[in-house]
Design a protein around this nucleic acid. Structure first.
Lengths: 247, 247
DNA sequence: CGGCAAGTTGAACCGCCTCAATGACGGTGG
DNA sequence: CCACCGTCATTGAGGCGGTTCAACTTGCCG
């Protein structure tokens, strides 16, 4: 195949879990045709919006978040290259969350109908979309456990390991070193912590020589130590799930 | 139609959101054929199990939970009559969470293939399944926001309102009065709180005359007050989402 | 060099947890 | 019928993790 180098992040991710032919990859290429560069902090999908858009995130990071009436906000999940945006609300009458870019980002917008058509034409692509949905949901559930039952330190360690794993899938992490281009406030919003406390927790992880941070690049120095601290066990990373669906 | 009285909870729920013919309902009846009564605290689906089962919950309550290696546990979601069990892991290689009955319960088990066949034969039923999946996910996301950004009091109020809304859909709540057959420990596990604190919070809600509790029956006394406290806004309850899928 | 966003640090406070004891209830066996 | 459990609910006292408020520093960009 020999196009791994410049292959889209989404295709790269799916290949880890599904047996994908060139035909199947063509579906993805079709979705990614409309490349569009957007500024940081651009709202791609608005909470409570009715006619929604769908995107593939090609470059940069975004946040799926929910805003409370009084201004508090919880980030549900960071989106990284290769993730769909808005797909979670495919069937809901309106988006239950917002999607905002964090960095400058490159996205491809596509109409709902296009995805429906592609799925109809190629069932294996349908399975891939369903798989992506399940994968994302598994991550959200992990966040729920994280916030509900782990201390700030464990929680933060867990998030870093999760991000490293996800970025690895799309070739954005090498040797445990990867960019995390978000502010500490963003980290607080995803971890259910204050900015101030995120700062202290990160320092503690550094002091323990578990990670290194320089300019928003994180380096995992002691993976075993970190995984033990976080009780990290991401079952969703194990492969070949959707192949069961057949045809 | 005239069979509303004894109609299955699942069919009843779906009718709120989708236009359902008798043919469509037949799919549901087919899934619910194998009624089976199980004792309280029966593990229906085990965490990390590979060959999973799928169920419809007909009567009683269950909990979807994730256990950490050190014994801490987080309940992702309560399942009530009309909910699918195990569907979330349809495409994952193994279940990422366990499902355990809370009360004595009546369930119907069905093989994965049966659902695949039904979806193939009746696309509208497929849309219904997808909708149910999205609905459940919206609830999980709500829990995430709840635990991440709301105080114990707000969180508990929010959960009670959510449960009332869900039970209403299947006719298990009348005038804001409904059974919540779970222990305070269960409530703690879903809310990310200790049993002790759940107790104090419930007492406070009672003291404020927002709710009444007698023998695991909850009564909403001041819905406006409760909704304001919880900043309750459940967009997923608004209807007619999946009809968009067409055919 | 000036200005703003983000990171860092300290001190005081409070929400929730921990530990521990007691009370209420239903079931069971003598 | 009552003594004896086990489970769940309730309450108190004390401690800790994370918040809050407020300053100060660092880095970046014009």
């Amino acid at each position: 195949m020999g196009k791994e180098v410049n292959e889209s992040a989404l295709a790269r991710k799916l290949r880890h879990f599904l047996d994908f032919s060139d035909d199947d990859v063509a579906c993805i290429v079709a979705l990614e045709e409309q490349e569009l560069v957007v500024a940081p902090r651009t709202e791609l999908i608005s909470q409570d919006a009715e006619g929604q858009s769908y995107f593939v995130l090609l470059k940069g990071w975004a946040a799926c978040s929910k805003l409370l009436p009084d201004g508090r906000q919880q980030i549900i999940n960071f989106a990284v290259p290769g993730d769909f945006l808005g797909l979670r609300c495919f069937l809901l009458p309106k988006a239950d969350h917002a999607v905002v870019t964090i960095t400058e980002a490159s996205v491809s917008q596509f109409p709902q109908q296009q995805m429906v058509d592609l799925i109809r034409a190629n069932p294996k692509f349908g399975a891939a979309v369903l798989w992506a949905l399940s994968f994302e949901q598994a991550i959200v559930v992990d966040h729920l456990v994280n916030i509900g039952r782990r201390s700030a330190l464990e929680r933060t360690a867990h998030l870093l390991l999760e991000l490293e794993a996800r970025l690895s899938l799309v070739g954005l992490s090498a040797d445990g070193s990867f960019e995390v281009p978000v502010t500490q406030e963003d980290l607080g919003d995803v971890l259910g912590l204050t900015t101030v406390h995120v700062n202290r927790v990160l320092r503690q992880l550094r002091t323990r020589d578990l990670i290194g941070i320089r300019q928003r690049r994180v380096e995992i120095l002691d993976r075993d130590g970190l995984e033990e601290l976080a009780q990290f066990a991401a079952g969703y990373l194990e492969g070949e799930g959707a192949s069961r669906l057949g045809q």
